[in-house]
Amino acid sequence: MNSGGKRPVRAIVLTGNGTNCEREMAYGCRLGGADVVDIIHISWLLEGEVSLSDYDFLNLPGGFLDGDDMGAARASANRFKYRKIKGTNRVLFDEILQFIEDGKLVFGVCNGFQLLVKMGLLPGEEREGRFEQVVTLSHNDSGKFEDRWVTLKVNSLSPCVFTKGMDQVYLPVRHGEGKFYPQSEEILEAIKKKDLQVMVYCHPETGKPTDIYPYNPNGSVEAIAALTDGTGRVFGLMPHPEAFLHRTNHPRWTREDLQEEGDGVKFFRNAVDYLRGRI
């Protein structure tokens, strides 16, 4: 236990129905300092055998939920919103809203980000008591799934607790549907006004946001790669921090001087530190 005298941080990594990054996500939580890290199959939540309320840090890992068959994470978003937890009249979506209200953290990577967006939790504007999807992550302009590393610029004005103290970060994207697209200009303006766009794809030489392929790998509007909500505690991004936990993950580790720890660990450490009350 490394709780440093503060209360223990309990992380849950949700799995099942096609997720596939749960193990490295859980490892990231451990490296970040979480005291309890459980990989839990979604059926256990739906059967009411495990409760989200026993955790502080919800991780939604990457993968292909339901094969992304009706659009990325679409079928799972429906399951969270409509499938009743056994023996109750509640759905998992209600549990997540409570989780957020309780001041806890939600972290969605790639397919997990798509899930948060399609449930309407990112950028997370409540309208007339409902959360509706107002942005999307759609098919890449290339029409292809691609695995490549990209340079990201962190928005230092963003309220996001996961990216505190970070500036530029290099991570892999691995998706076919990652193109950020807002429903309207107004929605985009509202996001920018509150600095909810946490990270943008940038040109490695200028460090500026870019719409040049492949630096912006999918054609995202305003090069937006990551979003948070107004609380800064719900965070989703297309690139994979959990794929860069050690320097040997970096594609140029054999030719550059790098720290032993990968830059992806910082996201997890920030989350754990926040929950411990250090931030």
Binding site: N20, C21, R23, E24, Y27, G62, K144, F145, E146, D147, R148, P172, R174, H240, E242, A243, L245, T248, N249
Partner: peptide, 13 residues
């Protein structure tokens, strides 16, 4: 190669 995920599971070296 780019259309195949060669890094999932986090152990790519």
């Amino acid at each position: 190669i780019r259309q195949y995920d060669h890094e999932v599971q986090g152990g790519s070296v």
